[in-house]
Design a protein around this nucleic acid. Structure first.
Length: 256
DNA sequence: ATGGCTTATTGTATAAGA
C-alpha cells in the first residue's frame, strides 16, 4: 500500500499537478492539505475519473484537508471531537483496515504570538485525540503538514532558524510527545539523503538553493512499523511551473 | 535587510503562509 501526503497550497490551482502525480505514481492513499476551497467546489468528478474516491473537509480561502483513496473509506471523521475549531484541519477514515488520519497542523506564525499559542493548544488537543484513536485503532497512520521540523538535520540552516517558529523547542517537544504515544517517523526508518526537505520558500530561490525544511511527515503506529518498506520525498513536483511550496512525502507499506 | 513569492478575496490593498 502506497500512501502519500502533500500540502498543495490551493487545490484549484494545483489540481493538474495532483492528477498528473497520482496518475504517474498510483498511490493507494493521497492526503492533501490547504485545499483552500469549499466542499461544493471540490473536484470529486475529476478524481473519480482517475480512480479515486475522495473525502474533503474544506472552507473558503484557508486550510482544508482531503483524503483520496483507491479503496473504500469508512468511519469518516472530520475535525477533532473535543476541540472547538473554526479551521478545517483534520479528516480521517478507515482504509483497508488501517486508520488513516490527515492533518494540517497550524503554522504558528511567530513564537509567542497568538497563533503560536493556538498551535500549541491545538497540538495538545491533537495528542489527546490521537491517544484515543490509537487505543481504538492499533494500525494507524498519521499523514500531514505538521509545520514542525523535528531535528536540526531537518532544517537547511539550524543556526539561522534557532528558536524560530517551526523549529522552536516547544514545537519540537510536541512532536516528540506524539512519538511518545507509540508513533514512528517513517521517513527516518530508512537511510535518507542528507538535506532532505519537504518545503522550500517561494522567495529567494529557496528551492534552487535547497533552503528548505522537512515539515511534512508520515507517522506510523507500532503495529505498522515492521510493515514499512520504503519512504521518500518526491522533489519532482516542486520543479513544475507554478508549484506548491511543498512536495509529496511517500511511504510504502506492506499490509497483512 | 523582518523583505524576498504565492494565493485568495468581491480586492485595485490586505492577510496568511512558513
Amino acid at each position: 500500500m502506497k500512501l502519500a501526503t502533500w500540502n498543495v497550497n490551493s487545490l484549484s490551482v494545483r489540481i493538474g499537478h495532483v492528477i498528473d502525480w497520482a496518475r504517474e505514481h498510483q498511490p493507494d492513499v493521497l492526503c492533501l492539505q490547504e485545499t483552500k476551497q469549499e466542499d461544493s467546489k471540490f473536484p470529486y468528478d475529476d478524481l473519480k475519473d482517475i480512480g479515486y474516491e475522495a473525502i474533503h473537509s474544506g472552507q473558503k480561502t484557508y486550510n482544508g484537508v482531503a483524503i483520496l483513496s483507491k479503496h473504500p473509506m469508512t468511519n469518516i471523521q472530520r475535525n477533532m471531537p473535543d476541540f472547538e475549531d473554526s479551521h478545517q484541519r483534520v479528516i480521517a477514515a478507515d482504509i483497508q483496515g488501517i486508520r488513516v488520519i490527515c492533518a494540517y497542523i497550524p503554522n504558528g506564525q511567530a513564537v509567542d504570538s497568538d497563533k503560536y499559542i493556538y498551535k500549541l493548544n491545538w497540538l495538545a488537543a491533537f495528542n489527546d485525540w490521537i491517544k484515543t484513536q490509537l487505543a481504538l485503532h492499533p494500525k494507524l497512520v498519521l499523514l500531514g503538514d505538521y509545520n514542525i521540523a523535528p531535528e536540526d538535520r531537518d532544517c537547511h540552516d539550524p543556526a539561522a532558524w534557532a528558536g524560530q517558529v517551526l523549529v522552536s523547542p516547544r514545537e519540537r517537544q510536541a512532536f516528540q510527545d506524539l512519538l511518545s504515544l507509540g508513533l514512528h517517523d517513517s521517513f527516518r526508518l530508512f537511510e535518507q539523503p542528507e538535506k532532505s526537505y519537504s518545503w522550500w520558500d517561494y522567495r529567494m530561490l529557496g528551492f534552487r538553493r535547497n533552503f528548505g525544511l522537512r515539515i511534512d511527515h508520515i507517522l506510523v503506529s507500532e503495529a505498522l512499523k515492521s510493515g514499512c518498506k520504503s519512504a521518500h520525498i518526491d522533489r519532482a513536483p516542486r520543479k513544475l511551473e507554478r508549484p506548491s511550496d511543498h512536495t509529496p512525502v511517500v511511504l510504502e507499506l506492506e499490509v497483512s
